[in-house]
Amino acid sequence: MVFFLRRLTFYLAAFLVAATFNFLLPRLMPGDPVSMMFAQAGSTLSPEAMDALRATFGFVEGPLFMQYLAYLKSVFTWDLGMSVFFYPQPVNEVLGRAALWTLFLVGTSTILSFAIGSLLGIFAAWHRGGRFDSFFSPLALVMQSIPAVVLSILALFVFGFWLGWFPIGRAYDLELDPAFTWAYISSVLYHAALPLGTLILVQVGGFLVTIRNNMINLLGEDYITMGRAKGLEDRSVMFRYGARNALLPSVTSLAMAFGFVIAGALITEVVFNYPGLGKILFDGINARDYPLIQGQLLLITLATLTANFIADLLYVVLDPRLRRS
């Protein structure tokens, strides 16, 4: 319990740092922060909306500390202000709508690549030095270093334009209405195939290499030899003795990689014109929509911290040593 309280305090502090960053940055830039942040907004926003926006970002009368408190208040009540580009929609609403698509991409691709990468990694470690290992492990590492932007563009070019197998934009066929029908779901899956495939390729290498290296180090341990000496089958030594322990660090890296995965998803969405956070952000950046850009930092930080907290919980379930202490 103490452990969880300490973790929660830590995550709260981390979130506070991100919020403080948002607060200080416009004030540290040369020039007037208000006119800089809302330069694009002048012509589109009504005077009342401008005042509301100023209040949200803590541009109130008073010393810096009072401004900070005012900003924190709007952050913790999750009032992220109005989007300038998508005026008159609040940032909250714009991001929320897009976040669903991103969550779908990130969630599905992470689960699939964790499963595929771990299985391949266990197999590679078991037959380390063999043909599969010597080819796929370096390949996985190389794949890991090829950025999402390059893979996405390559996939879009080859499968979207050249072969024409998959659609080159949007999340579903515009003729269909979102509904729980086979036509709609299959259209969503068809449109998600390329972005999902790219994201899986980006992630799978990392899981493969992590678990392979953990597993190789573990296979030298005495209890593995013991398991063999007892005459256990290869498979149960591989999965119950080796993999179970080798998976532990992967859970941590799963949570830590979450930020990278979201980053990858943002890029992939821009390339595939997929209506998730990345696409919204791209439009927001080009319009210099600061409330939107700052809002996405808070939202993604919150999502990453939540993922880390869930990983903490999972760790306790998976590792009995932690449960006792």
């Binding site: 740092v17 940055l25 830590m256 979450f258 990278f260 979201i262 996405q296 930092l297």
Partner: peptide, 23 residues
Amino acid sequence: TFFTNVVLVIPNLPLLLVLAAFI
């Protein structure tokens, strides 16, 4: 360590985007 962990857990790319946007 506290400082390191905080920086580690805040997603890097969104942070860089905010920074670059203001610059």
